[in-house]
Amino acid sequence: MLVLGEVQTAMLMHAEAASPPLAEQVLALVCGERVRTSHRPIGYAASPETYTGVDCPIPLRSGGTLRGVGTLAGRGTLTGGRVLQGSVTARITRSPDGRRRPWSHYLSHPGVVETIGRVDPAGIAEAHLLTEPASSTLEMGAVCRRLLVRVQQSPHLNQKSPFVAHRTTLRWAAETGTGPDDERVRFTVEDDGVRTLRLVIGAAEACDVIAVCEDVALHDWLLTVLLATVERSRIGAGEPAGVVDRLRPAVDHILHLWMPAARLNRDVMGVWERLERRPGLSRQWDNEVRRVRDQIATAAVLLNLRRAGEGGVATLDGSR
């Protein structure tokens, strides 16, 4: 089975982390359908699935295109009341008789896009990951953006972010059903917040594959935001109090959200295990978190010494 997807991750535009009831209100994107929520080990809410009909050319690695007809499945999710994701996916299958069928057929297979013509899974997957940042296969990026803007402009939110954070886009392609020796996981970080994830894994349900890709996108975003905050804090160059002030948004809103593979099925845990070996997202995260805490501890010590110095006790650099 070939599944393509795109996940865009952003900061929810609300001054405080959204409470579970608020999360349910802002994610109620389909009238009359329930928002799924869970509270352990981390607050999580997912909107009902939305479907978008498509009849578009799917680019191939060879440079040609293939006609794809069906529906994209999309949803918005909110983790920790703070991290908002728009996620759009398509399961790609070949139309059995090679003909365009009436819409009623496609509507009875939500989230499936049938190709009219022969499917080359690897070729479609590679072309999907290589598309220009401004465009995307089957206009998945546009559907993601629409999902996000619907949530961000919700009247239940106050549209005041605690700090600004760049959005990231994860494009992913997964082929399932391969033997254990052929399993592959490739994660790349491109310019302008674009990341790609290519999975070739064993038997797994589409919903579990989607969940692991959303989880990778979430944690990559957290890491990206933390790295940007640390870089701007001017550690070593600015006044300690100023450095801590610039690090504070990360401490207040980001550090407690790191929880890789919190809700994943066993079939896809192997993906995280491989990512932790290389590139080692948790290793980098832990390192940066230690750096943030060391800065805060150092600033506290310096402040105490300065106060003591004002009382006449010698300070670190020997001045009074």
């Binding site: 900061m11 535009m13 803007v149 961000q152 402009q153 600004v164």
Partner: peptide, 13 residues
């Protein structure tokens, strides 16, 4: 215009 400004407000100070 509203969508553009909201998006920019999210990503820029």
């Amino acid at each position: 215009c509203v969508r553009l400004f909201l998006r920019l407000e999210e990503e820029f100070e």
